[in-house]
Amino acid sequence: MTKLLLTKTKMSQGVWEGLLTGADKGTHPKITVTHQGTAVPDVSVTPLENDEGHALRVPIPPEAVSDGMQTLLIADADTDRQLGSITLIAGEALGDDMRVEVDLLRAELDMLKRAFRRHCLETS
């Protein structure tokens, strides 16, 4: 049984690229990429020279570029095992979410500082 391993190499001009290793010699890995349950078209898997693995190219579909967080799942088509994912984060929704998270972290930090100071006063 093949144990595929996926390593991201880069993302440029709307194309995500990675290196697939671990395929049995002479086999061509079958990869599926989905976004919100829909198959992403034009995904390519190309063997590299000297049996160093396969190059995976995933064009980012336009519908995946939108406000909020979008995830594309990369899986081995033969086993349905997830090999990796591509996460895109953009837009105003992100800014609001991040501000809320930072505010929550600040509030927790203030609470911890007060508790620590109280503890120091009580134990000294």
Rank of each mutant, 00 (worst) to 15 (best):
1 M>Q: 08
3 K>N: 13
4 L>E: 03
7 T>A: 09
9 T>W: 05
10 K>Y: 09
11 M>L: 09
12 S>L: 08
12 S>G: 02
13 Q>F: 06
13 Q>S: 08
14 G>K: 08
14 G>M: 07
15 V>Y: 02
17 E>R: 15
20 L>W: 07
22 G>Q: 04
24 D>R: 15
24 D>H: 13
26 G>D: 01
27 T>W: 04
28 H>A: 03
29 P>V: 05
32 T>H: 01
32 T>N: 07
33 V>T: 02
36 Q>Y: 12
36 Q>M: 15
36 Q>H: 14
37 G>P: 09
37 G>S: 10
40 V>Y: 00
40 V>N: 00
42 D>Y: 05
44 S>A: 12
44 S>L: 07
46 T>G: 04
47 P>S: 07
47 P>F: 04
50 N>Q: 14
50 N>L: 13
51 D>T: 05
52 E>C: 03
54 H>M: 03
54 H>C: 01
55 A>I: 05
56 L>W: 09
56 L>C: 10
57 R>Q: 15
59 P>M: 11
59 P>S: 11
60 I>V: 15
60 I>H: 03
62 P>S: 15
63 E>N: 15
65 V>P: 01
66 S>L: 11
66 S>G: 13
67 D>T: 08
67 D>G: 11
68 G>S: 09
68 G>H: 12
69 M>P: 06
70 Q>N: 12
70 Q>L: 02
71 T>E: 00
71 T>Y: 00
72 L>S: 00
76 D>V: 04
78 D>C: 07
79 T>Y: 08
84 G>K: 02
84 G>A: 03
84 G>T: 00
86 I>F: 07
87 T>E: 11
88 L>Y: 00
88 L>M: 04
90 A>I: 05
91 G>E: 13
93 A>Y: 03
93 A>L: 08
94 L>H: 14
98 M>D: 08
99 R>P: 01
100 V>C: 10
100 V>M: 14
104 L>H: 10
105 L>K: 12
105 L>R: 13
107 A>I: 07
107 A>Y: 07
108 E>T: 07
108 E>K: 12
111 M>S: 10
112 L>G: 05
113 K>D: 02
115 A>S: 12
115 A>H: 11
116 F>K: 12
119 H>K: 11
120 C>R: 10
124 S>D: 08
